[in-house]
Design a protein around this nucleic acid. Structure first.
Lengths: 248, 248
DNA sequence: CGGAGGGTTGAGATTCATCAACGCGTGTGG
DNA sequence: CCACACGCGTTGATGAATCTCAACCCTCCG
């Protein structure tokens, strides 16, 4: 029997198991398997028949699409507690994405038939999946919008804002969870453009030292606020918040 | 009691009701309301609390995001039989998207609480929602990938390929279901670039006359094939298919 | 007849990707 | 212990691609 690590470091508990009864959780775990992969290994390739759902226990991975020239579009970047391939299981057909380990990783793989059976059995599990997939979809909308109508500066700023809010709004410092080139590609720009954009942000009160980001004050990122970030920002509509584009 | 139109013209039956028991369908319909909206009316605005799920009965709509400068990113374009806001209901928080009628439209609105109750009650309804949302997510992935690593020609080509496959592979002619500028924005380019791209396609055996697209032969769009389209293409791995980039 | 909106075409400006070189830290093997 | 190669990130110069702006044609409709 597989036992989950009690502590998902970084306060990220796997949302996929939220509120499940022990009995149902045991059914899932008893049919799942642990997998380990080295950095840069491709677990899933575009066009593969999906095998199951992956829960990240240790390490980092990304989901991506490749074109013929070998250029890559990063869809998501995963940390412990995150899952992938849940959505693909319900799309029907081959996987539209590849999944690649960015570091040595340890995963829990829940086979497709167990996932599909549990969705029919346990409506809480079904709702968990719905919440997870819709959350991915929301991020995808932000990506689309970002690449269409946002400048590189705005994209980086918004990304930083979400990281800042994740880290806790009282914290004026946070760190980038991935390699810069990975984040750059996720944001739809080259590493060079990303680097130049960071330099540009120094003039806006945001200092960058390697992968540590320091904000001059709590409002340094308010330029990049939108409705979605405002709804989870504690400053919104309380304190100053004057720079916020929503207040124009 | 609301009765659904028997015939959803264009062979698009609403997937949200697929395989539901009459009893459960009646529960949903008895709590839903019909809405009508004029062209260009905004049903939902970014930041609104979502009211419910919308099923298009007549007309066309789009979901979109706006930035401060008024630039717009089209997320989806809806025809009769399509639904929207299903995903938003499960995201929590305010709606990240606006929904706008492109033509005079007639909709069925299923209130949020009915949707959420039915998901817990009826696992088939839950699975329908999962399939729909993951399908949207798949399209969103294509959009992201397209804007990152595809040229305008490839984006238009892929869009045409999907329309061609929808229309039936034996059909060498299909029509654009939306205004050109709308499609252009959906594909992340300006109407000008879209127009120039169409001209470019004439040299590849694809004639455009207003909103009618004519292919010289059944392989004219094979350049733009990928794994996802291949899995629903009847020519794939059967006949020639030589231009297909998958075969290089 | 005149105006409005969609679509097309042309010329110019802008922006970002590309290519190349460099600094730096790390790990490796002689 | 040092030399070296390698990967990541940065910086600079260049060019290509697409957006922008403007003018035009066409159809539709009052």
């Amino acid at each position: 029997m597989i036992t989950l690590p009690k502590d998902f470091s970084g306060a990220k508990r796997p949302r996929i198991f939220d509120g499940l009864q022990d009995r149902n959780l045991e059914i899932i775990l008893s049919h799942s398997v642990i997998q380990e992969h080295d950095a840069s290994h491709l677990l899933v390739q575009q066009g593969d028949k999906p095998q199951g759902l992956y829960l990240v226990l240790e390490g980092t991975l990304k989901t991506l699409r490749l074109n013929e020239e070998g250029h890559e579009a990063t869809i998501r970047m995963l940390e412990p507690g995150d899952t992938c391939m849940e959505a693909v299981l319900f799309m029907g057909g081959p996987s539209p994405i590849s999944v690649q380990a960015m570091t040595k990783s340890k995963l829990l793989m829940i086979p497709e038939r167990i996932v599909k059976a549990q969705v029919l059995e346990d409506s809480y599990f079904a709702v968990n999946l719905l919440k997870i997939v819709t959350h991915h979809y929301k991020n995808a909308m932000h990506q689309i919008d970002a690449m269409n109508i946002k400048s590189p500066l705005q994209r980086v700023g918004y990304y930083f804002l979400t990281k800042h809010l994740e880290a806790g709004h009282e914290n004026l410092e946070f760190s980038l969870p991935f390699r810069k080139q990975t984040i750059a590609n996720y944001l739809g720009m080259t590493p060079e453009t990303f680097s130049r954009t960071l330099k540009q942000m120094k003039g806006m009160g945001i200092e960058v030292e390697d992968d540590i980001i320091r904000m001059r004050d709590a409002f340094a990122l308010c330029h990049f606020c939108d409705m979605d970030s405002a709804s989870i920002c504690h400053k919104h509509n309380k304190e100053d918040c004057g720079q916020c584009p929503l207040h124009h």
